[in-house]
């Protein structure tokens, strides 16, 4: 795939309308966004502005009504057309990090991470060794065979980040990843995301309200009433 020549993700004129006729809601009215490999951007906006809708379109769980989206140069949506297998796209090309870690409680730490390559058809042994590498990169290698319930909240969040990276996706979507954390922990998570973006050459889009971390972004997309406005951030080191 032409990773170097294309941005990790590019959307142009993305629109989403919920419902039809009188009661239709235009949640996205033409969103443009381009994020390069290794870049972390913030996505902020007031409640009801369309953040969740955009995240769901980017995450390929709802289909936009119009506009274009491509991941690493490959079209995903194009004015009503879409690629066949959105499920495989989510598995292979997009990583997800949520407000809570949402780990699979009945799998141990390694298998929570290894599950993704396994779902993509990688053999168990190889998937687990990849998982252990990622856990080491996130400083939780020592918890590799622990049960999820034995981890602290911070450790769980690191495992969740390792999981998002497991299939080396070009795009990672983070939905309020620091909301429940105090400022030290929140900044730690942002530092990890920045490191990982560089290390794995992924584009990370962070949806957030969190005043503590907003100054860390170099670029911020403001979304208001279904439209985005790009703005330079302070880019302070977390």
């Amino acid at each position: 795939m032409a990773t170097a020549d294309h941005p990790a993700i590019r959307i142009q004129g993305l629109r989403k309308r919920y419902g039809t006729g009188e009661t239709a809601v235009d949640a996205l009215k033409g969103v443009d966004m381009t994020v390069g490999h290794g870049e972390v951007v913030g996505l902020i906006g007031p409640s009801g502005s369309g953040k969740s809708t955009l995240l769901k379109c980017l995450g390929a769980v709802i289909e936009p009504t119009g506009g274009r989206m491509e991941i690493a140069g490959e079209a995903v949506y194009d004015e009503g057309w879409r690629i066949d297998d959105l499920r495989a796209l989510r598995r292979d090309r997009i990583g997800f990090i949520f407000q809570a870690p949402y780990l699979i409680s009945f799998l141990d730490v390694t298998d929570n991470v290894a599950l993704l390559p396994m779902l993509a058809g990688v053999g168990n042994a190889q998937a687990r060794s990849r998982a252990r590498e990622l856990l080491a990169a996130l400083d939780v290698a020592h918890r590799a065979s622990a049960q999820v319930s034995q981890l602290s909240g911070g450790e769980q969040q690191r495992v969740a980040i390792a999981r998002a990276l497991a299939n080396r996706p070009p795009v990672i979507l983070a939905d309020e990843p620091t909301a429940p954390l105090d400022s030290v922990r929140a900044l730690t998570v942002v530092r990890i995301l920045n490191d990982m973006a560089v290390q794995f050459q992924a584009a990370i889009i962070v949806v957030t309200h969190d005043e503590k971390i907003i100054p860390t972004f170099r670029r911020i997309y403001h979304i208001r009433d279904g439209r985005t406005h790009e703005e330079a951030g302070e880019g302070r080191a977390p």
């Binding site: 995450g59 769980v61 499920r87 495989a88 989510r90 598995r91 292979d92 997800f96 949520f98 949402y102 699979i104 409680s105 599950l115 993704l116 779902l119 993509a120 999981r163």
Partner: peptide
């Protein structure tokens, strides 16, 4: 339900 939603999101099939 939450774990099932996560499994589906990360690409588990309905058959799985």
């Amino acid at each position: 339900v939450r774990e099932i939603a996560v499994l589906k999101l990360i690409g588990a099939t309905n058959a799985t």
